[in-house]
Each structure stands twice: as C-alpha cells, then as structure tokens.
Design a protein around this nucleic acid. Sequence first.
DNA 1: GTATGTGAATTTCTTCACAGCA
DNA 2: TGCTGTGAAGAAATTCACATAC
Lengths: 222, 222
Amino acid sequence: MPTPSLNSPETSGNDFWSKVPQPTIERLSAYLQCVRTLREEGEKAASSAEIARRTGINAAQLRKDLSYFGEFGTPGLGYELEALETQLARIMGIDQERDVLLVGFGNLGRALSSYTGFGRRGFKIVAAFDVDPEKIGHKTAHFEVFDLDKLPEINAKLGAQVGIVAVPAPNAQGAIEALANAQVRAILNFAPVAVKASDGIAVRNVDLTSQMEILSYYLRSH
Amino acid sequence: MPTPSLNSPETSGNDFWSKVPQPTIERLSAYLQCVRTLREEGEKAASSAEIARRTGINAAQLRKDLSYFGEFGTPGLGYELEALETQLARIMGIDQERDVLLVGFGNLGRALSSYTGFGRRGFKIVAAFDVDPEKIGHKTAHFEVFDLDKLPEINAKLGAQVGIVAVPAPNAQGAIEALANAQVRAILNFAPVAVKASDGIAVRNVDLTSQMEILSYYLRSH
DNA sequence: GTATGTGAATTTCTTCACAGCA
DNA sequence: TGCTGTGAAGAAATTCACATAC
C-alpha cells in the first residue's frame, strides 16, 4: 500500500539513506541557511546550542540530525562552519548545478522564473513549457518557452532531472506525467491538487492557498 | 523554553483546540480540497476510504483527524459532502473573508498579488507596502502600494489580521515586526530566513529554495 | 570546563482492529 | 452488510542525560 504522506516523496527501494527521518531532511536545509548566515557574519565556528538558538530547533535534535550522516563537530569547540557548510551541501546534493524545467508560464510561472533565489542556490531554469500559443516562443535572458508537447523531445537533449509545475489545478496531473515521461525525477508542484506520481519520483507540493488556510485555522483557534 | 518547530506556530495558551496534532491541521486543508473536487464532479457523499484513496492519506487517519472536531459521518454511508465541506471550512476559519497585507512588492510580491487562488478562497489583499519610492503609490485594481512606515497607521483603519512577507531575507525580520506591531496575528513568510515572532503570532515559512534543496536530496539519495 | 554524539526515555503521531450504528 | 468513531497497539520522532573527547 503506498500512502505517501503529504510531502514525503516515495524514495522507493531501501538504500543507505532510508534510515533518515523525513523531518530531519527538511531541517537540514534550515541548518544550511543558518550556517551560511553565520559565516557571512564572520563567524568561524558555532556550537549546536548557538545554531539551535538561531533556528529555533532543539540543540540535541540538531546533533542527532547531523549524526545520521557523520561526525562533523569537535567536542568542547562546536562545529567548524566552513566544513559544516560543505558537508551539508554535499548531503543535500547541492554541491552541483541542477537544470530545471518549468511547466506553466502564467503569472506564477513567470514570477518563479524571475525569482533569483533559485539561481543563487544552483537551480537553473533551462526551458519553460506552456500550451498557450501566445506564450510559446517567448524568450527570456536564460531560456525559451516551448510547446508542452515538445517537452520529451527537448529534455532528451537537456537531460534536466528537476521540474516545476505552475499550471492550473486541472492540468497538474498531466504536467507531472509529461515530466515523468521525460525522465524528470524530482518535481515541485504549485498546483493545489493531490497529484499522483509513479514510484521513484519525488514530488513536493507547495500549495499557497493551503498555507493560508492553515494560518486561518490559527487565527480562529485562539 | 520556546523551541517552535519549523512550521508550528506557537498557539500560546491552552485552549480547546490545543489537543489537535499539528499534522492533522495541515491535512484538513487537503481534505477540504478533495471534498470540493468530489462535489464538482457531482458526488453527494463519499467514504473515508474514497477520500483516502484520492488524497493518499490513510482512511483511519482521516477519520481520526475529523474526530477531533466532531462526528460528521454516517456509519454504513460515509460523509455527506456538502455538510463536510461546510464543517471543514468552519474548522479552518475560512467561512469568512480575510483581509491580507502584503509586505514587499518586488517580483514575488507582485506575482502573489496577481495570484487568483487567494481570492478564490476568501483571502483579499487590501494593501501592499514597500520601501522603494519607485513602487510606493502604485495602484492595482484592488489595492495601493504604501510606504512601509505607514503600515501601522493604515492597518489601524483596515484591521487586517493576516500578512504576507515577500521581501529580501535581510528585511524579513523587520517586516514581521512591523506587521506584529500593527496587530497582524498570522504571517506567511516567503523570505529564506529563520524569523522570530512573539508568542501568539502564527508564522508559516514558505521557503522555495529550501523546497528545491529537499528535492535535491532525494535526487542524490537513490 | 565545554560541547559533541548517542542509547534510553519520553512524547507525539499513525495505524490497527473492532464495537456499534445505519 | 458497510462504514464510522475510537481505544489500544505500534511506529516514529523528539528530548533527555551522560559517557566521552577536546
């Protein structure tokens, strides 16, 4: 029985990494961010307590999270930040550039494509796809908008492994399947629907409306 | 000791709702989405098994989640969808319109302001704020962009309780504090930093880069 | 003295399994 | 019969607390 939790990509198969709790993985990114900030402030090292204070995550939790991947600290001293950043980047797999396909070039798609944060972290949109003839053929500084039908053909050359889905809800399942067929293995889905992806494809849902609804719950509940 | 988890707003105080697990709240929104879709397809009722199948969430989980709030089903029949939708909307507090303040009118802020999904769910952006004189004074169909300094003054009239932060990372903490001082009690933060908010203010972080990094982890790990 | 890494204890969340109702 | 609602069991994640290392 599948039953993936809301944002838990099915990492099918039992590999070395599969002992790592899902929440740990989501926190690693927060640690990395914190370490980068500390380094920008000129710090050379920090204790788990310091990182804990800054991220709002328990210090023991941080140490345990890191312990799934190795021993990166020095007792009595803490963590050497440059080394820790390198290790975290390696663990997260962001020690390399990743090409990204964008499906959907409406408001949200365009906004995402001009969002500089992705590029700064090594995620580069190399092609966009849409079904609207008005949009097809449009060129930005870094990529062109193609007909969605051309996706498999074009990615056969590009070989991108990451996709972003920014299409209306009814088209999302189709977009996911198109990406899956084109060998994309990780997808960030902005469409507000539950989508099904075959095993071995990681999908993360970023449903902005849902986030608002969750906030709304907290407004109501106290 | 505070230690809020990554996206767990501190609902300070012990109230009736505080027995509800955090993950339950995040799933309610998914159920609601599913129920809406089923109704659009003309269904009148559905079993927990059917909703489970569609959302990818375990059926027992769904029943238990709902049970925190009451008994909404009929043994032998399932859930009457219209009633369930009403109840879920009430539970989530989206049975009313919510005014929203947008802080940051750069690329992301503009994209969010033209995102129709919020409006469709009853979240209405009523004012935007920025520090850039180029942007201040700009008017859209539904709101105007004001100087960030004017936020408290303007919200004294508007009385919005929800805010969206779409500013660069270094400005995020300031934006959160400005909102908090203006009586905003729930904030959706898009800036990629750990921000601190006082007790009683719910903050949800939507860090797009972090989402990509998490996907990247899955690419690497199998 | 200080701070890590980790087994054990605890807490939280999920799933099972079934009594009870339509 | 079919499906809900829920106590109890089980699994997972978090936190404690301390032996160990610098």
